[in-house]
Amino acid sequence: MLRNSLIFVLVIAVGVIFYSLFTQFDGNDELSDLAQFYAQKENIDKVGSANLVTAVVVTYRGLDTLGEVTILFLTAAIIGFFLKGKLEEGKREVRPSSEILQTAAAVLIPIIIVFGVYIFINGHLTPGGGFQGGAIIASAIILMLLTRPTMPFNHKLFSTIESISGLSFITLGVLGALFAGGFLDNRFIETGTVGELISGGAIPIIYSFVGLKVGAELSNILGDFQEVQNEK
């Protein structure tokens, strides 16, 4: 009882801190200096991406995105290390999934994958991008695993896709350093007109590889979680 009331007091105290933060915040009427730089017409035309968030993520702060992808890779590697400790394979007995789920999965999985690809190819035009598209592709994989819980999971395929995409990402970055302004500069390909599908220089290509890499990594994690359930 004492413990619960102490926790209650702590939560209230944090709430008071938040309340004072909230009362001191009275909205923004202008962009910050940095955001004004990103939203200038000449800089929009220079980068060629209609989605300014994508411009920030892939070009201005592209190195951060590389670090982010590395963190995801590390997570996948650590999870693989922890979940593959024992090799004894026990056959898991599960009821076959219902016919509704099986039919729906057969119809939906290709559509979901195509939607994920659409999201990351249009990442420079609409809300979305590599990470979102990759997560959608992984949701198709989880639907597949729910429909057939005991299906063998091809880790090798996903690891290969992941390695190739990661290598291509870095290669495109180096190309930017060789033929344009610096590492991960997108302007070594014509940037074109803002708002068209083929525009933004290397942004759609880089974001597609990020999407493939993220999708493959998340799928690998899901496969690890599926395999640990087959263990005794």
Binding site: N28, L31, S32, L34, A35, Q36, Y38, A39, Q40, K41, I44, D45, A50, N51, L52, V53, A55, V56, V57, R61, D64, T65, E68, L125, T126, P127, G129, F131, V194, G195
Partner: peptide, 28 residues
């Protein structure tokens, strides 16, 4: 939203869009 299209032209984006930087941070 910080996306250039028919309603937000590149010329006036600076007066029409919200800050894209924290959104990119949240993506990370």
């Amino acid at each position: 939203a910080p996306i250039i299209d028919g309603t937000v032209l590149a010329e006036e984006a600076i007066n029409k869009v919200v800050d894209p930087v924290p959104q990119a941070l949240v993506l990370t």
